[in-house]
Design a protein around this nucleic acid. Structure first.
Lengths: 203, 203
DNA sequence: CAGTATAGTAAACGTACGTTCACTTGTCAA
DNA sequence: TTGACAAGTGAACGTACGTTTACTATACTG
């Protein structure tokens, strides 16, 4: 029962991430699982309910990942507390882990692609997508850099611009990884750029 | 006649850019223009024909823009000829113009958002999107940097990594600009980062 | 063992889709 | 003036959609 409900969620997520919510039919989801669409309504109230469950799952996952890597919780709301123990070297590990998370983790990668397809449909979806992988991380890093500058753990500069500079390669390389046939190892490129950044801004 | 056909194209493009091709109905497009859907088929063979015309228009536009700014033609195929007269200062102007083009030009901005919504639906759409605003520009810049290094117009380094470093802020700021309520001027941030890059890599 | 959820099927519901067609209108050249 | 053509209407086509319903088989629980 719970197993079937979970299979529906993951199957639907994969389809939504490729074609978008509206372009995927309930019949297709059910067919992919070898069942009829009627059975699907024993587990979810309607099509939108499947989608909403994914979003809820994503919010839950985000919190647990932030805790796992010891970073101050984002929860898609930036807080300026708890930055005291973070330095540039630790930030590097977190950044590489973030890349792997958004490209290799099946759920995270799928939800990211799905939300990128829904981001213009409503103000709410746009906000969620932005806070998850666009302006959210930038805002977060800017606050982090400001805190590090104030406590002498980093040279002083324009925190917002530096946040854009630091985060943008991660964002671009994630987008590039959606396309296969990439010859260069994106993780090596990312690591090189992070090292270069650290070399220029560490005290 | 030609005027109506053009209005249909632009109206459909705006709708496709917000909701995606499949989620927009022919009735909605016609209704937006105050006509019935039957009339629409006097101008386009079917719904897909409207979409294909947009793509063709985009390829045409890309060529003319590349010529306008005096850059060697991309045409979504990277060529290593014609890089001789380009230097880092000129590249800065081109980069700022590119940002304005992809965010302010109505057609370019709409087609970019539409293709981002279609990029996972087929291998072909993914390739077009990538070559237009993701790996295409990176490849192009890498070739450009290599040529500049070989002729002593730029310090020597890893061209591909530098291309990612140079292009990624542009790509991220374009994505951020899709979300309003941005307080900082993205063009100023971009210009600052480009200046910083030039300062580090000019001979 | 009887009874009651649970998880599934198959068919039907009304609605909306993309597309076609017969028909009407206006324009303009022969 | 007439006749062809371009552009639009509105209804109809068949199909597919999301959802509901009546029914069935299975499995746990008193």
């Amino acid at each position: 029962m719970t197993d079937t409900k979970e299979k529906i969620l993951i199957t639907a997520l994969h389809l939504f991430a490729r074609d978008g919510f509206e372009a995927v039919s309930v019949s297709t989801i059910a067919g992919e699982l070898g069942m009829t669409k009627g059975a699907l309504y024993k587990h979810y109230a309607n099509k939108r309910d499947i989608f909403n469950t994914m979003i809820q799952r994503m919010f839950d996952l985000d919190q647990s990942v932030a805790q796992k890597y010891g970073m101050p919780e984002q929860n898609f709301n930036v807080s300026t507390d708890g930055y005291d123990s973070v330095d540039l070297a630790y930030l590097k590990n977190f950044t590489l882990a973030q890349f792997r998370f958004w490209t290799e983790d099946d759920f995270a990668s799928s939800i990211r692609r799905m939300l990128s397809l829904e981001q213009y449909r409503s103000e709410e979806m746009g906000r969620i997508y932005q806070e998850m992988v666009v302006s959210g991380p930038v805002q977060y890093l800017a606050d982090l850099f400001r805190a590090m500058m104030n406590t002498g753990r980093m040279k002083v500069g324009d925190a917002h611009s530096l946040a854009v500079e630091f985060y943008s390669p991660l964002y671009l390389l994630i987008a590039m990884s959606d396309n296969k046939q990439e010859e260069r190892d994106p993780l090596a490129v990312l690591e090189g750029l992070v090292d270069s950044f650290i070399g220029r801004w560490r005290v």
